[in-house]
């Protein structure tokens, strides 16, 4: 057993785990943050995406001990209590989720995508960028719509803020 301490959603948290424990299991089982999901065992589905030191990563692809000392944001931490991040709100408006299982990973990927691509997201880029996230319910149509709409809105807000 090894003690792992990291900053999760702005709070220092720690827990004991086996050396072989994956970050995703540590987050779910030791920290009780069950919004991050496990959908596969080959790092293909993206249900487990979190932000690690500001980058989106599949939390099933690294060990908890490797993440010690880093800063993690999970789906529970991207908006204030009771609030929705613009990406979350856009998923709701455009019906970008059905069973909700892929959704946390999708949202975390989308937030990161918008941060990296800023103003020049188009349908083609969104579809390409979502390559690492599988959704079995929505056919992606409304997810793509939601990401583009959130991007629009966030660019608009950024422009207003700059003016």
């Amino acid at each position: 057993m090894t003690k792992v301490t990291l900053t999760v959603n702005g709070r220092a948290m720690s827990g004991e785990c086996d050396d072989r424990t994956l970050l995703v299991h540590f987050i779910r089982e030791k920290l009780g943050l069950t919004g991050t999901h496990v959908g596969c065992d080959t790092t293909q589905c993206g249900a487990c995406v979190v932000h690690l030191d500001g980058r989106s990563v599949k939390s099933c692809s690294i060990l908890a001990v490797q993440a010690a000392g880093s800063t993690v944001t999970t789906i529970e931490g991207i908006a204030g209590q009771g609030e929705l991040h613009p990406v979350q709100a856009a998923f709701n408006t455009h019906h970008g989720l059905q069973c909700g299982f892929c959704t946390p990973g999708m949202v975390m990927t989308a937030v990161d995508m918008i941060a990296r691509h800023g103003g020049d997201l188009d349908e083609h880029t969104v579809r390409h960028e979502l390559d690492g996230n599988i959704c079995r319910c929505t056919g992606y149509h409304n997810i793509v719509k939601a990401v583009l709409a959130a991007n629009e809105e966030m660019q608009g807000a950024a422009r207003q803020a700059a003016e």
């Binding site: 919004g35 929705l84 998923f91 709701n92 989720l97 909700g100």
Partner: peptide
């Protein structure tokens, strides 16, 4: 828009 979305979107499913 769906009522049930909020819990799924915030990781509370």
């Amino acid at each position: 828009a769906r009522k049930e979305d909020k819990r799924f979107l915030t990781g509370k499913g």
